[in-house]
Design a binder for these strands. Sequence first.
DNA 1: CGAGTTTGACCCGCGC
DNA 2: GCGCGGGTCAAACTCG
Length: 305
Amino acid sequence: MTLFDHPSLDLGLNIGTSSMAKKRDYNLVKDEKIALEAELDRMNEENKRLNELLAAMQANYAVLQSRLAEFMAAAAAATSTSEGRSSPGRKRIKGGGGESADRAAAGGSTSSAEERESSCGRGRVVMMREEEEARPRTTKLCVRTDPSDASLVVKDGYQWRKYGQKVTRDNPCPRAYYRCSFAPACPVKKKVQRSAGDRSVLVATYEGDHNHGMPSLAPGPSSDHPATGPSPVSVHPSGPTVTLDLTRPRPAGQDQRTAAESPDRFQRRLAEQMASSLTKDPTFTAALATAISGRFLRLSPDHNS
DNA sequence: CGAGTTTGACCCGCGC
DNA sequence: GCGCGGGTCAAACTCG
């Protein structure tokens, strides 16, 4: 009757606008979902691409290492024939026959030195050569940091305790000495020094292998797990060297798209910025570097030898 | 109060 | 033998 003869205009409009708004919201959510799915696809693609890159790098590293092994074997054969026994104690290794055992014991955590000590005799050329081969693995990690950042900290996921700092002759920048403090008996040491040529590059030299897992990769609320990452990799004569650029600026033009952005574009940009900030995080990137180098070490043919 | 950092001293290998 | 330089020690200090 009258009730139905006079339907509220507002009510009807409200219903109409409400459903339209719902539809608009639905479309927005749909757009957002499409955008996120596209972003996910893009990330998956990038992940796939980086995995392929990593596989290629591993293959290259294996080839280079085998070549290095061949070269070392050839060089050893050549020097053993020409050198003879003329210089039994010429190339000494710290912690070897000349290093006092009580010093090693006083140091507390010099298991690598002790291992060498136990495996070498005094003044025997053959043993010296075995000792050289038993030398702890040395890995270099070059990290590009902000030049204004004066700290000698390379966040690689492990827990380090600084035990010394020294200004060396060939480099005005001080060199910091670290020991792995995560496991008491872990023999790994790390030296960190700014590159003499490029102050923005931190060169971290790792000696030895960790006898424990990676602390930051253990499950936990604050663990920063690498999934993808940048990093051009080069192999140095002393071992694999991972180079990271932590100061890379965001892609040009990204900051220029601020005016008149559609919501889904904004969402996309937000996602990009999140991904960008994640990969720009030094801890994230350094952990990634360690994970990559750790994977190299595990895949190394002479590892655990 | 414990863990980490700083820093001067010390040790030791090596070249001269 | 001596001095230099790299590596390490350890007491003092800082920080959370």
